[in-house]
Amino acid sequence: MAGPDKGRMAEQPFGRIEAVTKTYPGGIVALERVDYDLRAGELVALLGPSGCGKTTLLRMMAGLTRPSAGRISIRGKIIDGPQPDFGFAFQSPNLLPWRSVLDNVLFPVEIAGRLDTRARDRAMELLDVVGLKGFSRLRPHQLSGGMKQRVSLCRALVHAPSLLLMDEPFGALDELTRMEMHDLLHAIRQSSGATIMFVTHSIAEAVYLADEILVMGPRPGRVVERIRVELSYPRRSAQRYSAEAREYERQAGAALGVVHA
């Protein structure tokens, strides 16, 4: 169930970001007063240049860093540390080189002490979805960059998280692999129904993937504009080039100050 299940849960948002500020020692304000209500099943893109605090916000949602002020809650629970039903996809594939593909995917369930046949079956299913079923016994160094990132995606999803946090996961991939990964992500959303926060600095990526874009600006990091992306589902790559998508890209570019009238 991807994205478009709006309105029904409007009373109680899936997640709340309330007046969240992050200040680093020395008085540097990484993020200033962000408020946002995250709706269940949506993909929200955090779009901005480096230094705008988008990764900081994502890490706070993951419970890896605490806000200096304000609070983040998911399903009513205040985030004070990493949560068991969150998934995190890193900027680099971040696979452990001494583990096989399958064992990398299984890492979160192994840590949680729930390594059983069902978990293995699920891991194999995920690898199948991303087209790596036959590669489960290989080790990371035998894979290409795109393949590694797909394994990393499977690892983030293996415990069926309700919230998937993605930190520029396709940033290091080449353009063609990236486009494939976008459609793969749409397919995964379709089947998992997870809510997703997605950090990116690519305008086109944000428009094609997101239901809502939080455009962020630097010094101090803050949300400068919210753009609702009403592209229809299921999204097909041809929609990237639609007039609608172009218009969203123009809006986002204008909000970022890189597109001028």
Partner: peptide, 23 residues
């Protein structure tokens, strides 16, 4: 990044040592 992975998967000290730090 390995330690971040350990953190988001909520690995305990023992697991961090055996499954991440030592290898």
């Amino acid at each position: 990044e390995y330690l971040d992975l350990a953190a988001v998967t909520r690995a305990n000290g023992w697991q961090i040592f055996w499954k991440i730090r030592l290898p």
